[in-house]
Amino acid sequence: MDGEPITIRKLRERFGGEVLDVQRRPGDDAVTLKRGRIPDIARFLRDDPELRYGYLMDICGVDYLDLEIQPRFAVIYHLYSLEHGHRIRLKVPLDETDAELDSVVPVWDGANWFEREAFDMFGIKFRGHPFLRRILTHHQFVGHPLRKDYDHGKRQLCTEVWDLEFE
């Protein structure tokens, strides 16, 4: 063993060009990735017999505006492998100008609402998402409330009822 967890080793072997950075902490490893091939990486992590990350625990967005980290946004995936007990965190930094990346809904069904939430709160677009629409705020809402430059006290009224055929 060279001490590097198997997930990170395999990711380096297979997608060496995509790995930007590795953060190592026992039980809480993180890999920073380029955004280009996220669905491929996700499928690989799920299907590889030595990894088998069957669980997508969480997707969330982070806005680093006040920390002055560039690029401004990041999407964070938390994965868990039931068979092997591994955990990994994937970070995908995104620029403010085109905050877009490919959806992982085809890989894990459960990504659906988490991606919608990240879209709603941060305005990060997920290409290929089946139903990318606001999930927590209402349809007349303008802006993305968890961005650090949104005035958090500013309310927006919802004046009409949305058709109940969705949601």
Binding site: D58, C60, D63, D66, L67, H78, D109, G110, W113, F114
Partner: peptide, 21 residues
């Protein structure tokens, strides 16, 4: 960010995943 307030806390609620199915 090292201060007394959290910079970002994301809660992963169990129901959110269950409800969508």
């Amino acid at each position: 960010d090292g201060s007394g307030n959290p910079y970002r806390v994301k809660v992963r609620p169990p129901c959110f995943a269950i409800c969508q199915s």
